Amino acid sequence: MPTPFTDLSRLSLNQATTQHWSVRQAVEGCVRVGVPAIGFWRHKVAETGLQESARIVREAGLQVSSLCRGGWFDALTAEGRRKQLDDNRRAIEEAATLGTDVLVLVCGPAANRDLPSARAYVEEAIATLLPYAAENGVRLGIEPLHPMYTGDRSVIVTLEQANSIVQRLTHEYVGVVIDVYHVWWEPDIEAQIRAAAGRILGFHICDWLVPTPDMLNGRGMMGDGVIDIRRLRGLVEEAGYNGLIEVEIFNNALWEMPGDEVLQLMASRYLAHA
Rank of each mutant, 00 (worst) to 15 (best):
R269Y: 01
E28D: 10
G234C: 11
A272F: 01
A46Y: 13
L263H: 01
D152V: 08
V174G: 04
H182C: 04
I245F: 01
G218E: 08
R230T: 04
S65M: 09
W184G: 02
D214Y: 09
E261K: 14
R58N: 09
E79N: 09
Q19N: 15
G225V: 04
I38N: 02
A162E: 11
Q15M: 12
M1S: 14
S154M: 02
D86V: 14
D224G: 02
L265M: 14
C107T: 10
L103D: 07
T17Q: 01
I178H: 00
W41M: 14
L105G: 03
P213W: 00
R90S: 13
G39E: 05
E79I: 05
E238N: 08
V23Q: 13
I249K: 00
A274Q: 07
S22L: 03
E186S: 00
M215I: 14
M215C: 08
A60D: 04
V138P: 03
A196K: 03
G39D: 06
W255M: 05
V210W: 02
H146D: 05
R119I: 05
G175P: 06
M215E: 13
P147E: 00
G34P: 05
Q161N: 01
A191R: 09
N88R: 00
V64C: 06
L115E: 13
V226M: 05
V31P: 04
R119M: 11
V33L: 13
R231P: 07
A78R: 15
R219M: 11
M221W: 06
L263V: 02
I205R: 01
E28A: 02
A272H: 06
F203E: 02
G29E: 01
R81H: 08
L265Y: 07
N88G: 05
D224F: 04
Y132F: 15
M221N: 10
L13T: 01
I126R: 03
Q19T: 10
T170W: 13
F203C: 11
A16L: 15
L11E: 07
A91G: 14
T100W: 03
W185D: 06
D188L: 08
R55D: 12
G137W: 07
L130S: 08
T170M: 15
E93C: 10
R82E: 12
W184N: 02
L129G: 04
R119Y: 06
N112W: 06
V45H: 12
A16P: 01
S268T: 13
L130R: 05
R55Y: 08
Q161T: 00
Q167E: 15
A60T: 07
H182S: 03
G220C: 01
I178R: 00
Q264G: 05
E94V: 12
D179P: 03
D74F: 15
V157L: 05
L130A: 07
Y270F: 14
S53W: 00
S9N: 12
S268D: 12
L115G: 07
R233P: 04
I38D: 01
R81A: 04
A54E: 08
G141I: 01
I229R: 06
I178Y: 00
P36D: 08
A120S: 14
L129I: 11
E52Y: 10
E135P: 00
I142R: 10
I142T: 05
A54S: 13
E190N: 13
F5R: 06
S9I: 02
V177W: 03
R82Y: 09
